[in-house]
Write a protein that binds this DNA or RNA. Structure first.
Lengths: 227, 227
DNA sequence: CGGGGTCTTGAATATCGTCAATCGGCGTGG
DNA sequence: CCACGCCGATTGACGATATTCAAGACCCCG
């Protein structure tokens, strides 16, 4: 790996590691004892590609990341969006089963997979933390699959509520990703995403301050759509 | 938990535990040291329900199991089919995030979650096994999501290939599940599943010996559909 | 041989996708 | 500072795929 337009590894910068941590867990990724290195990725820069060696695990310090798979004909499925605090790239196999790119300029903490694994060998807290992250991702993935059987309006509603919960803005949600990213996450087209947002806006369930800046005027209405 | 029409726990019966085991792994679930109990579930009997306490982990000894989530309006998403050798029901939270039912008469090995967890505390091999099972499920779930963005024909093709690989019959695939189960797994309707199978059959890609007994006449053709 | 559930088939409809044009914001350069 | 150009987003008209509603066939079990 280590390709793409990224900056040179900078000195390690301690991170605010609130998210992703359950009570009583080891502050994995938060100090030099495990040897993390932070890197900056430019907009659309590849962090790793499907099939590449899974030699590192990653944590978002700032910015946002999309993970995705592509079909042979170019159709793309965004499996997950990772926001500050999220850990990603942990795999059981030796190769990544999906690709990851920075959505916007992003600062990412890299930790050698071996460091984490060998640490887990001797420290059961680390092992449990590792497992709990994976289990949480599994749960998210299963809920994602649940999304994909819903109607377009329901998918958008669920997506907005999810993002509102994770981005916690000042009265509005500032989406880092494009309509295409959203479409590929929800299994829709950009046109349908756009139309659905317009429709929700016309029903004053939401308000579009800008295309990526959205006010949830009526969250409970979104929740009802969340069948 | 422990509800539904199931038989009383029988004496432990040693299982053929080939599947789900990676090289060098601990034969978890295969002996009394961890206190497994096998139970028989009748067709359509509930093994556990969403929201119930996740006090056990399960392994299919014979028969088959469907895991699913339901939306408030009754739409059902089958998240996974579990076949002999598969382990399921491991969760990070204290409650199951999905339900599980026997598809046909099934024999299931139950192991107390606490036994597994405490074993993982002291034995890093068990911890690693636990994690690898969860990671493998995550990978399957992500591939499942990938399925849901494809066309009906592609979904059916992928499903048939998957089942053929896992069921390994004598010249044909004997499906344990109904069209409704397949439909809910693939995010389609029974009618669409039926029509698509008929269409594949007319193109002699497959042959329907009986509705649940299918010959893959031309697997490579199915693979090409697997975009 | 009958009955109930499963599966298949048909016709009409709806939702979302495709193709295409236009709009709009933003950075660049004059 | 304003004009241009580019990329992303929106909107419209149309079409295709899958759903819905409905009827009938098949098959296993009693």
């Amino acid at each position: 790996m280590i390709t793409g337009n990224r900056t040179t590894p900078s000195a390690h910068q301690p991170a605010a590691l609130q998210a992703g941590m359950l009570a009583g867990q080891v502050p994995l990724f938060d100090n030099a004892q495990i040897g993390g290195v932070s890197m900056t990725f430019e907009r659309n820069a590849e962090i790793f590609g499907e099939g590449e060696g899974a030699d590192y695990v990653y944590k978002v310090l700032s910015g946002s990341v999309r993970a995705y798979k592509v079909l042979s004909d170019g159709r793309r499925q965004v499996t997950e969006f990772y926001l500050p605090g999220d850990v990603f790239g942990i795999e059981s196999g030796s190769e990544h089963s999906y690709s990851a790119e920075a959505i916007d300029k992003a600062s990412i903490l890299l930790v050698r997979r071996n460091s984490v694994f060998s640490s887990a060998e001797s420290n059961s807290d680390v092992a449990r933390y590792l497992w709990s992250i994976t289990a949480a991702e599994l749960k998210r993935s299963q809920n994602h699959a649940l999304l994909l059987i819903k109607t377009a309006k329901e998918r958008i509603a669920a997506f907005l509520l999810d993002m509102a919960g994770r981005l916690a803005g000042k009265g509005f949600v500032e989406l880092p990703m494009s309509r295409q990213d959203i479409a590929d996450y929800l299994g829709l087209t950009t046109e349908t995403v756009s139309r659905t947002l317009t429709s929700l806006s016309e029903g004053s369930t939401i308000q579009l301050l800008a295309s990526r800046r959205i006010v949830l005027r009526n969250p409970s209405q979104l929740n009802e759509l969340n069948a």
